[in-house]
Every structure is written in C-alpha cells, then in structure tokens.
Design a binder for these strands. Structure first.
Lengths: 111, 111
DNA sequence: CACCTATGGGTAGCATTACTACCCTTCAAA
DNA sequence: TTTGAAGGGTAGTAATGCTACCCATAGGTG
C-alpha cells in the first residue's frame, strides 16, 4: 500500500476505529491493521502525532490510565468527534464517487 | 471537497484523464471538473507542477504546439503511463476497499 | 483607446502530513 | 541476563497540493 494515498484520510480512519470503543495507541494500530485486512500497518510515528492532533482539535479525549502499574494513554471519541466521523464518512463517499467516475468511467475525449 | 484528500491520488486522476486523448493543461482541468461532476475544480498551481512531475517520470509526453499562433503544451500518455494507470487503478481499488472496511464496517470493539 | 475577461503557461513559497529514525520505560520469557 | 514485545514519545525530512503571483494573446465592451 503506497503510503501517500493515506494523506488526508488518516483522521477519518482513526475516528472510525475509536468509534468501536476506547483504545490506546497500540490498540489503534492493531485495529487499523486487522480492520483493513492487513492493508494498513502504520508506524507509531504516524499514529501518535495524529492522535495528538485529534486531541488538540477536541475530537478525541485522551486519559492516562495506570491499571497494570504501566502508564498508558487511552483515547475515546468526544461528541464532536462522533459528529466529525459522520462528516468524514459522507465526505469519503463524495470523494470516492468522484475518483471512481474519473478512474473507471469511460474516457471523455479531448476537443 | 476538502483538498488534502486528493493527496497521493492526483497523479492517477491525471493519467486517467489523459487516457481519453491528448490535452493541454487547461483541458485537463476542465476534464477533471466535468468528469468528476464538478467535485474537482483544481487550480493551475496544482495541475501544471503535477503534469511536469509526470513528464519527468516518463509517464506523460508534452509537446509544444503552435496551431493558432498561441503556444500551448499538449500532453499525452506514454506506454509507461498507460501501464502506470493500470497499476493506479488496482491500487485505488485496494485502498478504497480498506478504507470502506474501516469506515463503514461494523466496529471492532477494543479488548 | 482602455479595460475586463477568458484562455493558456508558469513559478516561489507555504502548510499540511505521513514517515524514518531515534529516545524512553516496563514486563515476561528464554 | 538478555532479548523481545508492549507502550509512549519526538525531531527532522520528504512529498505534495495550494495560494499568490508572474507572463502573454484574444475578444469583447465601456
């Protein structure tokens, strides 16, 4: 999977994953991998800054938990994040429709 | 249409448009607009550098024409460009499949 | 004539964003 | 004791689309 394709879509995927319940960073990476059929195997250097961005934007809330004596940060969707996820879904559909029309549609001959 | 979504997919769209026959830059912009149902209305500052990239990569061949006394540059797919377009199409399908699985699929609950 | 608009090509610099390559800790198993 | 996985993090880089400009020609319209 060429990486650049992900640009601009990662936030939507993170929100979608967190819609399944709170997770910490490693869990998010795992959910992306399994949920995509192994197609997205993203490095931590991609996920953590992205989660921080989403938190900064108020779409996600992160809380430190210390259940096993180990510091781990758990992220969950905020109300704004859920709304954003809906927007992202319809935005994806529109984008996808346009791309498919151009990629798979019959060629429009030049004048 | 949020712009960042386009990142990493523009080259594929350009190749797809040029598969309909040679065009100059303005024609490419127009074809992207009409072919996408008005969803992609991309500025020249996006298209021209991208076409130059594709030319540099040997996927597209540009030739100056002077039919109406006006200098215009016409681009057409090379053989490598046609091959690349096929790759881009299957790559898009794979990417799209993965995104849809995550965005629309049933949430995978955290452990 | 002067001005505006569309067509047509181009570039410099900016902002965003994902990635590589690192640093750190804790814990279990070999 | 050492190795590996789990877990969190950052600095710097590369790619790339966009904004804001530059240029020219042509055809209308005030």
């Amino acid at each position: 999977m060429r990486a650049e394709r992900l640009k601009g879509h990662l936030d939507a995927l993170l929100l979608a994953v967190l819609a399944g319940g709170p997770r910490h960073g490693y869990g998010v990476i795992e959910a992306l991998r399994t949920g995509s059929g192994g197609r997205f195997d993203l490095p931590k250097g991609t996920i953590y800054p992205a989660l921080h961005r989403l938190e900064q934007a108020g779409l996600v809330r992160g809380t430190w938990s210390d259940d096993t004596g180990r510091q781990r940060r758990t992220y969950e969707l905020t109300a704004a994040g859920k709304r954003q996820l809906n927007d992202e879904r319809s935005s994806w559909r529109e984008f996808s429709t346009a791309v498919v029309a151009l990629l798979e549609g019959k060629p429009c001959p030049a004048t």
